[in-house]
Write a protein that binds this DNA or RNA. Structure first.
Lengths: 364, 364
DNA sequence: CTGAAAGCGCTAACAC
DNA sequence: GTGTTAGCGCTTTCAG
């Protein structure tokens, strides 16, 4: 305390080593928990660490280990490019309202929060962290790729919200480690986790039939994405097997508004229906609203069943009967696949499919 | 192409320099846009860059610049510690359901998505990225501090959800750059952005009065946080000024469920009320549900006004009249304060207060 | 305007 | 079991 040299900035390994009377290598070993270090020295080092207030420099470590312990959590969008014509200067002053529709929309669906929860729960105990990225324009996609190429993150976890998303292909082409949430619309050699959507839709169909509904309809998700297609196929197939070869459908976009519009169309053409399967909870909520506005009771007059079991499902009135998608577990598995894959020689891809479950509440 | 040496891994500055026939320093200059480089050479370097497919290594750069271009976006919670007793091994297998209540809850409120939107809009054009962190336990808070101390991020943007949050103090004590969303419950020397909550509550009060409501009540937010206190104070003061010194209140927790419960309590004690100010939209929605269930029409029998103007406000039935909080702009400003502060000598703190605005829809 | 050289702080062989 | 040493890839004085 008397003649401790005024350290320039934050203490380094060197400072700790000096304080403990050992070499940098030894300090490094105890900090990284490498065995073969005398317990007595370990203790001395630990004391020196807390004495100096040492914190390892992540950049220096990354430089040699080639690991950052960060992963990119990217929400990827459509292929459309609402950017200004080429040559325009990069927008510097971020207009807080415009250009934000994508991110705003992403979080409007409780789905994404569940993905984050699952990912963080897996990453955190491992000392890793997610960097949030949105890839809704080609520019943004390039950013994701260069972010990873610069070694800013060890790999990417991508949740794609639209079909024809070029990002998964870009990632594999660049040889970057990545795992998707949901099978890509176009085949790409990449690992992913997904849900057995058709099984879920079957569960919904059978429940509706079992409770006595006979004039059924479905509000589908966007039909260009596998989840939308599969949920429709599963519902239709099951209905056909039970003697209902023709089922009225109205396509939605997984948003509450689109669910309302779809329900209105359905009701206009089929005023007598008594059961509706919506391909997600948000649309099911929209359907319930419209139904009530038009004087139908849910579930007495029309039964409604959703999909996902999002937080909105239990919160809304009436609480939604729905098909549960274990999003948190799927997201954690996605993280696991990525992390495990980092240590293995690249090339192999793995996919894990989860099974849905019916959750019966009040709407059907 | 004939005798190009097989490059071990990804190309480095050295490789580009060789390909362009210049020194590393020169390549570095053109890549970083430092002036004083011959245009001809610049062009040659650029060609070499794309020829080699070079991408600068972020860790190496950070090591010398002491900047990561990453910022921690942390959602901070209460001071409670639901951790196992000391000595228990760190939970390695992340249970996807448990321990997730905090993150799940965070995203249930559309508020957080708006914060992310604002932050990302500001960061992105500047080549910076947010690392998502949750600080709901003391362990998690320590992690945030060490993350920053290791230089993994240049600073922190913190959104605190509860009073008595020790994180802001920990950050300033450690001399780490940080900016808060909302004034801390206890005074801490730190920059923040906030809303003029009292003005917002006044807007709500005056609107209710103007539409003829005379038997008013309010569902408050948690009364240990400034936002909850201020919205109540603003409402009460305005009411008092207009001859309503006594206003029934019921405390909520900013969640829909708590709003429902509060509304039930209010109705039980004051069955004749004709206007309710809820301190946020989620609670206002809960109130509307309860009101309708009990046979009251909104707004004919009871007018309801919310706060925030979250996405839920316009989506719900009836669409909510509410007080708009410009969350995206506030979040962007928070990011700006942090980034600007990084280059300045530390010490100075700045706070920016935003003004709310009334948004009239159908519920009042 | 460009090149040479000195590190940034850490890990990982490799000796002892 | 511990120390020595050589870089990881980049930026940045400092000469020229």
């Amino acid at each position: 305390m008397t003649d401790a040299p005024r350290l320039a900035g934050t203490p380094t390994l060197e400072d700790v080593a000096r304080a403990a009377g050992v070499s940098r290598a030894t300090v490094s070993r105890v900090i990284n928990g490498v065995r073969n270090v005398d317990p007595v020295i370990q203790e001395a080092v630990r004391r020196a660490v807390s004495l100096t207030g040492y914190a390892p420099n992540r950049a220096a470590r990354s430089l040699v280990t080639r690991r950052t312990d960060a992963i990119a959590l990217v929400v990827s969008g459509a292929g459309v490019d609402p950017e200004p014509a080429d040559g325009a200067p990069a927008a510097d002053t971020a207009d807080p309202e415009s250009g934000s529709s994508f991110t705003a929309q992403v979080f409007a669906d409780p789905f994404f929060g569940r993905v984050v929860t699952g990912v963080v729960n897996y990453l955190r105990p491992r000392g890793m962290h997610p960097v949030l990225m949105f890839a809704e324009t080609s520019r943004a996609r390039e950013d994701v790729v260069s972010f990873l190429r610069q070694g800013s993150a060890d790999g990417a976890l991508v949740v794609s919200t639209h079909a024809e998303d070029p990002l998964p292909g870009m990632l594999t082409d660049a040889g970057l480690p990545a795992v998707l949430y949901a099978r890509p619309a176009r085949p790409v050699r990449i690992s992913y986790v997904d849900l057995a959507h058709q099984d879920g839709a079957r569960l919904a169909a059978e429940h509706l039939l079992a409770r006595g509904c006979r004039r059924l309809a479905t509000i589908t998700g966007p039909l260009d994405v596998p989840a939308g297609q599969d949920r429709l196929a599963g519902f239709r197939d099951t209905m056909a097997q039970h003697g209902h070869p023709y089922i009225p459908i109205a396509e939605g976009q997984f948003t509450q508004e689109s669910g309302e519009a779809a329900m209105e169309r359905l009701l206009a053409e089929h005023p007598d229906l008594d059961g509706v399967f919506a391909a997600n909870d948000l649309m099911a909520m929209g359907a319930c609203h419209v139904l009530r506005e038009q004087g139908r009771r849910v579930p007495e007059d029309v039964a409604v069943i959703g999909f996902d079991d999002s937080s909105a499902a239990s919160a809304c009135r009436p609480p939604l009967t729905t098909v549960r998608q274990p999003v948190e577990a799927m997201a954690a598995e996605m993280a696991r696949l990525l992390i495990d894959g980092l240590s293995k020689p690249d090339g192999a891809t793995t996919s894990v499919i989860f099974e849905p479950a019916l959750v019966v509440r009040d709407s059907a």
